[in-house]
Every structure is written in C-alpha cells, then in structure tokens.
Amino acid sequence: MSESKDPLAPHGSHARGGPLRGGPGGRVTPVTARDGAHWAAVTSPTAVPAASAAPRPDTPVDPDAAISVRGLVRRYGSFTAVDGLDLDIHRGEIFALLGPNGAGKTTTVEICEGFRRRDAGEVRVLGTDPATGGRRWKAQLGIVLQSGAGDSQLTCRELLRAQASYYPGARDPDEVLDLVGLSEKAGVRGRALSGGQRRRLDVALGIVGKPTLLFLDEPTTGFDPEARRQFWSLIRSLRDLGTTMLLTTHYLDEAEALADRVGVIARGRLVEVAVPSALGGRGSAPAVVSWTEDGVRRTQATQAPTALVSELAGRFGGEVPDLAVARPTLEDVYLRMIGGPA
C-alpha cells in the first residue's frame, strides 16, 4: 500500500473571517518594533491567491483521509470548547495542530481518539467514527496522551511487552526501546524514570503497536534540547515508514521542523491550515527594516526591503547604522492569529 501524499503546493493564507484579514496590501507603514504584534498592521492577502488547504464545511467527510472532521462541536456546560471545526489530515503526512491552552486542541484530538463524545459534527478516523470504533480500529492507532501513562512497578521492557501483546503484528519491544533511546533503561521500573525518560516511554508505548496513525499530544514537554532533536529524528523515521501523525505542540520550532502542514486552532475553530513556511501569509509578508538614525531607532515594514536598504545606503553614504531586515517568524504569525499580544 503505497500512500502518495497530496501534492503540498504552496497553500497560501486563506483568512476565512479570521483575524488575518489585514489592512490594505503593500502599504508601507512605519510601526514601532516592540514585539511580534506589528505584523498585524500590514498583511497582504492579495499576494497569496492559492486555494485554502482547509476543507470547506459543506463538503462531506472524506473516508479515505486519515482524519476527516466536519462541523465538530463540543460544549462543556455553557462553554463551547470546539465550535464548528473542519479538518482533513491526509494519509502519510505529519500534521501539527497549534493553539493556545483552552483553544480546543486536546478536546478535538481526544474526540478523534475516541476518548470524548461530541455534541455535533461528523468525524471519520481511518474511515471509522471514533464513537463506535472497536478493537480492530484501535489496533491501527497509536496514542501518546498529554497526561502520559501512570506510575508502574513494571520495567520498561515489561510494559512494552504487555502493550505489544494487545496488538496484531506489533513491533519488537527491544527495537522500540532502542528507537526511543531507552535501551539502557529496559530493566528499570516505569516509576523510577525521570520526566523526559517517561515521556520517551510514553512514545514507545504509542508506537509499539505499529500504528497507521499516531497521535502525539505535546510529546516533548519536559525534554531537554538534545532529547528534543533525537525525538524529531525518531518522528521523521516513523514518517518515512508511512506513519501518519497528528501532533499538538506548544513549540513552534517543533511544528516548523516536523510538520508537513500546520493548523492553527483558536476559540474552537481552525483559523488556518498551511505549510509552515506559508502560514499567515508568512511567505509574502512584508519585511521589517530597522536602523538607527539621529540616535533614534527607526522601523519600517515594506514589500521592497532591497529598495529601501539601497535608498538608506545612499542616504547614509555607506554603512547603515544597526541595520536589520526581518521576516515574521512562525511565532509572530501564530501570536497574531490567536489574538496574542496586541
């Protein structure tokens, strides 16, 4: 079964009623560079005509997709955690779901995993409604919960052997321990592991069943930078084996490093889906040029930074003091989308 990924043509911004609907395109607006928020002043929606990568609410669920969600709603009392969410995740891709705490990430993911019920909407995960998914369906999933597995008196190897015995055609527990870098801890009890080691054990338990679709809910929380890099290469090798992954994370560099596509969820809706480099019109967003003139820090957003820099070079007759040219980082566009610091 060869899964060909959908061609990930540079999907652009599609500010569907979201906070992305910016000001007039191309206008050069001097702003003070204090934080990421200045990007809100100038966006150019006209420059990115590519079609939306998010599914339209009026199309039916796609049973061939790894995950297909239409009009998902979940309320907790009077609070609407998920408010009409549409999402398609293709087979074979790594999809990162970003969003602030309380935006509805975990609720959405746990509905797809079959842990939570929904109030409205259609959901298909590997062609099955999670609310009715049985053993055969669960055998195709790997789940790394945000909360992780609990304390155990069993050793890592024993835990993985037990977990493997629930699945048809599971991976070899010792190979999996090796894959997550826990070989040396194979004989150590689960409860005696450090925080980062526990998280790696969680990941090992999630992949030992050789899942077609792997859910990773904030998998690298508590990792040191080196462990995170190792984890990233593990995820990439799983992708090469054809595993589809839905990843939620707070680390934008992680999403950028791993994900084929990124979805931003805010207030229970998916506000945008794009390849990381194009998120929020990032690829075509104006650059910010800053320099010092008459002892004052000056900043200017522009679509033509080269022209501005050469003009400055002419004006100063050589080196421009403290010259810097910056494009919005993923963090900048992300913070703007979720209505971050204004």
């Binding site: 842990f115 669960k138 919960l145 609990g150 304390d151 069943g209």
Partner: peptide, 18 residues
C-alpha cells in the same frame, strides 16, 4: 482510583486490549 487518576486506565482504553 490511583490508576484512573494517573492516566493508566485512559492509556489502556486507547489500546485494542479487550
């Protein structure tokens, strides 16, 4: 109760364990 609050049960419920 311990296994429920520390996530052990939830982890098991996500597997094909009968």
């Amino acid at each position: 109760a311990t296994e429920r609050s520390d996530g052990t049960l939830k982890g098991l419920a996500g597997t094909p364990m009968p």
